[in-house]
Every structure is written in C-alpha cells, then in structure tokens.
C-alpha cells in the first residue's frame, strides 16, 4: 500500500497541470461532459467514400497516408474545427491537407475539380427541378 493517500497531492498537481501544461483538444479523457446522446445515423454515401479513400491510401500496397498522419492532421485542425465539423468532415479535411503537403495533389487542381463538381451538381439539380 502507498504510504500516504495520493488524492491530495494528485489534486493539487492536477490543478497546476491545468495552468502550466497544455492539454490538447482531442485528448479528452476525464473531462466533464453531459449525458451520452445515444445518436446513431446511417452513414451517407460521401462519408463511406471518405472512409474508403483512407483505407485505400493506407493500404500496405500503397502506404501513401498512414493512420497516424490522418490523426495528426485531425488534431491540427484546432479546437473550433474539431467541435464544429462532423467525424468524416474532419477526416476529409485531414486527408486533403496531408495529400497537399505530400504533393500528391495540388491546391490548384483540387480547387478546379471542386468547382467543376459543384457546377455539375447544380446542373443536375436544375435539370431535376425542370422535369
């Protein structure tokens, strides 16, 4: 058995830690929070696509992006983004950042393709409304 109860010095230490030692936003074990909302949702096709993209990129055949890099990219999004974005929004944001950093895709081509897809989608929607 320990010679003295740990609680007092541990409590004092934990309050010093809070001031002096940064806790990163994603590192949330032990923080206070409300009840667990038993939410579930069927994953949307775009979310499954993100998941599949990550699995393909991290596949031992390709090893383009490791799961550690994905996590680090998510952690680097910062507290605001972390809380506001959904799970797969965080994933695709990190994947895109990582791929740009690695030179697999360029910002220029990404931006152009996103604009093209948006235009395509809007055209489909307009067609759908016209029919």
């Amino acid at each position: 058995m320990l010679a003295a109860p740990p609680s007092l010095s541990h409590t004092r230490r934990m309050s010093v830690d809070k001031e002096a030692h940064m806790r990163r936003h994603h590192d949330m074990g032990g923080l206070e929070a409300g009840p667990v909302e038993r939410r579930e949702h069927d994953y949307a096709p775009w979310e499954k696509r993100v998941d599949a993209i990550m699995r393909l990129l991290s596949d031992p055949k390709r090893r383009i992006l490791r799961v550690d890099e994905l996590r680090r990219g998510i952690e680097a999004l910062g507290p605001g983004a972390y809380d506001e974005l959904s799970y797969y929004e965080r994933w695709i944001a990190s994947i895109a950042d990582n791929l740009i950093e690695k030179g697999v895709i360029t910002i220029d081509e990404l931006g152009r393709r996103m604009a093209e897809i948006e235009a395509r989608h809007e055209a489909e929607r307009a067609k759908g409304r016209a029919e």
Partner: peptide, 22 residues
C-alpha cells in the same frame, strides 16, 4: 447543394482515380 467537405470528398476521390492511385 453540396457542402465544402462533400465537394472535397468527391474531388479528392476523382483526382486520386485520375492519377492512378486507385
């Protein structure tokens, strides 16, 4: 309309296919 992140997901997927990554 597609959100920013949905556009990102679609564009990244298409570009990686175009580049032969998968």
């Amino acid at each position: 309309p597609l959100t920013h992140h949905q556009l990102l997901a679609l564009a990244v997927g298409e570009l990686l296919v175009d580049k032969g990554v998968f």
